[in-house]
Design a protein around this nucleic acid. Sequence first.
DNA 1: GGGTGCAGCCTTTTT
DNA 2: GGCTGCACCC
Length: 988
Amino acid sequence: MSHPNPKHAILHGLNEAQRQAVSSDAATVAILAGPGSGKTHTLVSRVVWMIDHVGYRPEDVVVATFTVKAAREMKQRIGKTLGNGRESKIILGTFHSIARRYLAAYGRHVGLNQKFGIADEADSRAIIDRICKKLQLSVGDPRAARAWISKKKARGAETSKSADEKARKAPGLQDLETCYREYQNHLEKSNLLDYDDLLVRCVELLRQLPSCVSNIQTVLIDEYQDTNGVQYDLMKLFAQRRQRITIVGDPDQSIYGWRSAEIRNLWKLLREYRATVEISLEENYRSSQSILDLSLLVIQQDTKRYKKALKPVHNKGSRPVLRRLKNASAEADWIVSEIKRVTMMSGSMLTHDDVAVLLRSAALSRHIESALGKAGIPYRMVGGSKFYDRVEIKTIVNYLRVIYQPENNDALARVMNVPQRGIGDVTINKLMEEAETASLSVWAVLSKHCRGDRTATTKIMKHAEQKISGGLLRPLTDIRKRIGEASGPNGTPFGLVQMIEQLLTALDFQNHLQKVYADDHEQRWANVQEFVSLATDFARDMDRTGDDSLPEIEGLEQTKDDGVLARFLSNVSLASDAQTGDNNQESTPLVTISTIHAAKGLEWPVVFVPAVYNGSIPHMRAEDGDEERRLLYVAMTRAQSLLYLSYPLFSFNGSGERNELSPFVTPVSSSFLNKGPCLDRPVMGEIARILRRKLPPEDSIFKSLPAMFSPEDNLFPVDPEEPPQDAAGKFTRGEGRPTNDAPRAKRPRLHGPSSGPDNGEEHPWKRDYATTMEQSSAFTVNSLPVFVSAAAHQVAITAATTAAVAVQKAEQAKRLSSKRLADQRSIMWFVKSNSSSTRPAGSGRPTPNITGLPAPNRPNTTLPTQIQASVHRGESSLSRPAISPELTGHKLGAGKLMSRPSVPDVNKTPKGKQYACFSSSPPGPSAAEDGEEPPEPTEPAACLHMPTVTFPQGVGGGFRRPAGLGMGRIAPMERLRKPFKPLTMNKP
DNA sequence: GGGTGCAGCCTTTTT
DNA sequence: GGCTGCACCC
């Protein structure tokens, strides 16, 4: 077997599995990467490997991501490793932006007007809105109609029958289809593509003109679990010439189902590319063991899930917190108090930059923003309301769109009366209708009318007409003229920024803002200026890197002159948010507030997940409960060392309705602390180790603590339902501050012990620093010496406990470890046997022909043999039945959901016994030594040769023992010596 | 008839 | 905080 030379620079510092993933010469590689396993790092390294080692030209490599942020980070990191600015030649971006580039360059080959614009969600909704109103369609909510249309487009080539059936049952189908037709019609007339069209039309292009991607050597897809049908088709088409694909993904982090993401795409890939090598990255370099344990307990509630291991590399750390607060504003105040406590007690080892508050929905940020504001803690909000969504910015963008595309009626309609020109909605709508019946654009109707060429049937008042003519038509025409002139040979190009500035002057925009937004016009004008500076950056970057151009392909002509305006506009439409990169120069540390969706792929030392109540997560309107659970899992696994969940007991609005704890948390609530951990020296020490930072000396921390500072999380009652006085009476011995002493009284945990662990594995939990406040009374500013000794004492206790537990666990692990081989499965197997149950109602029934497979290949509960031949080589698993239900929750000391394993051992002992955990990675050189022949490729790869290295044990690994308990304890130092640097937080 | 201003509604997640 | 519906004014 070939073993890449580990001395190759790019492989340095990778663990074994990562190294395999990076250097595999298989044509298709599927990397299953749990949270914090170095996914991005691996993908980045593989790209660099492909270019530097294999020798592909950067411009022949496609890297697709899902978010702009991910694309940006990827580019940056590849650039850092690759050097020479070569990364800018890679075709790298979101699916949408890559599609746009191809359409801009070659779209005319599929009959696309080269000057197309992009309709964002608001545009689409407005169009659908109007159509529904005009035709009196009964589609209910226009949003729903939009979603329906989007889903229809996103499905891609292989229409699954069940989806079709479901769609057919949708109420008002007739009307929906009419709406769809009309909508598409309208887009075409306005020369607009919506987000889905970008992908759909690009698929069309690559099918009809395969030569435009004939140069592509290899395609890499990040966050593969989020691909939808069209994106899958796109991926295949990009790779159509040489069939080399690398995907990275984690089914557990699939949180875009609502955007038609198809987990089954994983299965599709493995089926269509038989020689695919699966590699699992299981070591988690991010989070403390406690955080991983709990996260796994949450995700494992999904019994249909493909089970993966998550092996902690770090020490146990302090237990995550589940806090109940009275209401949302108390919750926000508590978060602020914890942020203060954590930063203070760490002696500024942790700053505001290290803290994130992750929300199910952006609307939840209100209380938190105001609490942070009150406390004077600076923050940034990611996701939610975007910069480009601000009215004043939208107005300018719409003006630019009209300049670019006069036929864009929707954009024109929105600016026609801004600043006020005496034209109201009614008139505007009439103009739209008139334009449509006359087959003219609104722009044409207006300009003809003003010139006197054609009188509009819509009545336009005289003063309005003047304003339209002089304040709208003329200035925009002027700007357009200047753009035209500049592209002539003699003129210097009319820059984007000049264009915007001329526009602002012509509109007297600042004055307009002052008039309309009396109280906050300054802020709004500042936003406009920010917009100008963004445009400046954009223009400069475009000059510098000549971004976006696709490689020349012989015999194919590209359309080259999509000017700076076109690119800027598409950038605005496709960017989830403005890149406020430049004004972020190492300035004040900021707390991050973000939606969970927007936080994917990122990490922070301290993470708060507020509002974990039923209705928020899972969200009231969510259709897929499993996806909501995965969302919580994603949120939890962002945390490196401190994780806080919380929820308000009473909802704020209205009559104090009671919130229930999220059902995802309820079963495991007893595993949480019920208030913030004591942040004493040992706890802080562990945090420092996980983060690889240096903890300031104790006395310097203490010196910086303000007077009256409370070192405990005791400002809010642990049980908000009991008035503090009561609590004092019940739980304290008459001291002034009740909550401070509550834990000492060994008060029962929040949810009682009933749901607790059911066997002797319980004690490691108890031994945590937890709520035991032995040293709490001493932990004040005046009694520093006591604190020190208490801390030292704690260290001793902890060390002893840890050692004892480690031995015990290692033994346990040894006893159980032989089972793993028996039950592991390749993901291929998993997806096949489970695809029937991916639909909530469908479990148990035979799958209704997924994607039209020939019958013999249909998923079945017995293992189809050819899968084994192609991907997975564990013979032993062939003869075994599917994972028995008892095994799936193979977790000791877990909640009720799990039960003890009861399957007999298998005679095979894993080779890598030194890894006393139930996982196979890194499999090491023993991989191919199990005596089985490598599988014959059922489909010759278009290149190279069969992979010489696979992961016979690993291959996704079937069910795995949960990471948390029973892990063989590698001594902490040993763990820390593990290669690979943890990911660092991405600062947008 | 049409434009403007105010009160009360709902608010998932993203390209 | 944004959008719709409604009442009031030009």
